[in-house]
Design a protein around this nucleic acid. Structure first.
Length: 252
DNA sequence: CCTCGTTTTCCTGCTT
DNA sequence: GAAGCAGGAAAACGAG
């Protein structure tokens, strides 16, 4: 779905791939995800952060291991960083990031060259960079047989939205891949499938027309009441505030 | 029935 | 352009 029978290999794919939900892809991925995009050189700061996020996801590294603020830069600046720079600003994750960006620079350069020399390579590999299906298919990864249907679990405590969110975080096995902790001890979390969460919330409230748009408005009301705190810059990321109870490991 | 707190719906404008 | 984010305004809804 949403794969749009694209005839245009470059342009149309560009934007849609970014927001694509939760690309849980295994190693070997790197060139895959971004190769078709512009050279990292041309990324905006937003794209840089998206890249960071995805690399962390793919390696299943907790996002609290790096400071996103240290990557307050656009693609041009990013490309100018050397190996040591990455170590400096990202510590042990540095090498992984360096490796990823190096691959992407190469891939990007290759694509540019290819476009310039355009058209002919009278070639064994025509202009098929990647079949659309390659990366846009739902990736319905049957990853987790998730052995147990787990019929009964503790069960929700409270009827409020923030409690609903908290309980998903506390019992991820119930709804895998919807929301994930970004920093467990700080109470920072991120929506992976925003619309799916909204659907689930709507289901609970017997409201089939719930959307993330509306759910997020309710979330924003929590800022004033300090049930949530703002997390700037990063989309779909929230943080529990002092008036949110029951999410800490200690106070379970 | 009324009040109050919370959420829903809709909207305009801004950002990524 | 699409998807999120910010909040204002007003209506809806459930609890008490």
């Amino acid at each position: 779905m949403s794969v749009s029978s694209s005839t245009n290999t470059w342009g149309s794919l560009q934007t849609s791939s970014w927001g694509s939900p939760n690309p849980l892809v295994m190693p070997g991925y790197t060139s895959h995800l971004w190769a078709h995009n512009s050279h990292p050189q041309f990324w905006t700061k937003y794209q840089v952060w998206d890249w960071l996020q995805q690399v962390m996801d793919m390696h299943q590294i907790d996002a609290s291991n790096i400071a996103f603020q240290n990557f307050d830069m656009d693609g041009h600046q990013l490309c100018n960083l050397g190996y040591q720079d990455f170590i400096l600003i990202a510590g042990s994750v540095g090498p992984i990031l360096f490796h990823s960006i190096t691959e992407l620079k190469l891939a990007g350069t290759f694509e540019i060259l290819k476009r310039q020399l355009s058209l002919d390579f009278s070639c064994p590999f025509p202009d098929v960079t990647y079949a659309p299906g390659d990366m846009y298919e739902p990736l319905s990864h049957p990853l987790g047989p998730v052995a147990s249907p787990t019929p009964s679990l503790p069960d929700p405590r409270g009827t409020h939205l923030w409690e609903f969110i908290r309980d998903i975080l506390l019992n991820p096995e119930r709804h895998p891949g919807l929301i994930k902790w970004e920093d467990r001890t700080e109470g920072i979390f991120r929506f992976l499938k925003s619309e799916a969460v909204a659907q689930l919330w709507g289901k609970k409230k017997n409201n089939s027309s719930m959307t993330y748009e509306k759910l997020s408005r309710a979330m924003r009301y929590y800022y004033k009441r300090e049930i949530l705190e703002r997390v700037d810059g990063r989309r779909l990321v929230y943080k529990f505030g002092r008036n949110a109870r029951g999410w800490k490991e200690s106070e379970k």
